[in-house]
Design a protein around this nucleic acid. Sequence first.
RNA 1: GCGGAAGUAGCUCAAUUGGUAGAGCGAUAGCCUUCCAAGCUAUAGGUCGCGAGUUCGAGACUCGUCUUCCGCUCCA
Length: 487
Amino acid sequence: MANETNQFSEIIAHCKEYGYIFPSSEIYDGLRAVYDYGQNGVQLKKNIRDYWWKSMTQMHENIVGIDAAIFMHPLTWKASGHIDNFSDPMIDNKDSNKRYRVDHLIENYAEQLALEGKKEEEFALLKSMEELLGKDDFAGIKNLIYENNISCSVSGTCNWTDVRQFNLMFDTQLGSISGEAEKIYLRPETAQGIFVNFLNVQKTGRMKIPFGIAQTGKAFRNEIVARQFIFRMREFEQMEMQFFVRPGTEMEWYNYWKSERLQWHESLGIPAEKLRYHDHVKLAHYANAAVDIEFEFPFGFKELEGIHSRTDFDLKQHQKLSKKKMQYFDNELKEDGKPYGNYVPYVVETSVGLDRLFLSILSTAYAQEKWLKEDGTEDSRVVLKLPPKIAPYKLAILPLVKKDGLPEIGKQLLHDCQKSFFTFYEEKDSIGKRYRRMDAIGTPFCVTIDHQTKEDNTVTIRDRDLMTQERIALADVKKLIEEKIKD
RNA sequence: GCGGAAGUAGCUCAAUUGGUAGAGCGAUAGCCUUCCAAGCUAUAGGUCGCGAGUUCGAGACUCGUCUUCCGCUCCA
């Protein structure tokens, strides 16, 4: 009966129409690549986050959570490498549209000079470049490129844009007195909040390796091109867990989390064929192994979660800059009967984008269905087949008519149920229309109060996905739903 | 960032050669009530994305700008 299509633009439209996601500050034309979660979206997002939180912390006695601030000491980003690696001045060639890091562009040209035997010119060029870069004199850099007639290797022209700084980190000022204010960054990842709290948590929680610290929270990246709805946003939410292990055991844990995390996504109803691993060939500066779990979005397979073996890079860097020892004393005995002793732990990270996960779940759940009714006419619906445990509303209570005392029974049931889970109550419009509305927002169960209810205290309960109904005792409704929404 | 396309009511779309905006669905209120969006009545909702320009007159033409989608580019 199902004839499903999965057009991305239809999903976006559905999100807006049914209160899942709105463009940010839409009345002012929106803000590029920034979105707000609506009344249903916030609930779905929260349920996904809670499910992650529970499976990471509550279900693992050796993983605890924290909630670090978005603002962090500026040296944090020096230590992590974000300041040095992500603030390169760039320049575009207007003819080829090719973008270069200006230091690479000039260094390449300098190499040519060297090959031509013009050692002095090479030296002078590099020296001026360093001076200009040192004082962020971008106009000067551009002049330097023009003076030396440095051209684009693709177009061969010197038709350059201005030099621009592309720093992925947003900055702002801490302290309100200008001049005295300190430049401070909005965190580009939540991981560092965990690393800087490593000692606090390990000591106060008396944590023994291996152990993990989990955190969910907002991160900010000033992406040059942010697009594809909520897939790449400038403000987004991460759910990260850093797992601290004994050096040498990291690959074991890396493989453990690699398979663990894939299964977790499947437990949220994402079909296995829409998930795959993508091993990194080119590794980031901090990693010795990295894999992405990719999901087949409507626009192709893209990264959903990253699992990285980060070695001891981060803790060592913080040790270096903070001059605090990021050590752990391992009392467990080696084969020779002596303890493992002091070391800087290795880290295996799992990092999933909550917004991306939201989009994965939504695009998996979204379905347009068409079928023939008994009288031969076509019927159709749009339904979000969300797993009941994360659906915004778990149950809708629908009196068949709004008279004869049926609303009163419905409201009593609402009162009983809403203490335990989100319950929707609606008595307006035809029952079919109300079912369609509930399908559109993904409510898994609808209970209808009819005249028989008054006689024998039973109601019909309708399954969203099957559109079938069965009659159950009114008194069993709450218990039944609670059973259905359990993990 | 480059190229292409689009923007009129909550949604889908109309509006002659330029003559100061309409429909269906939806929403709200009421009536009716029969378990899968389709009965009846009434009401609300738009400075045509925004800003200039051309014109006696612009939703329509021109320019700019914002936003979105598609392709390229980028992506610790």
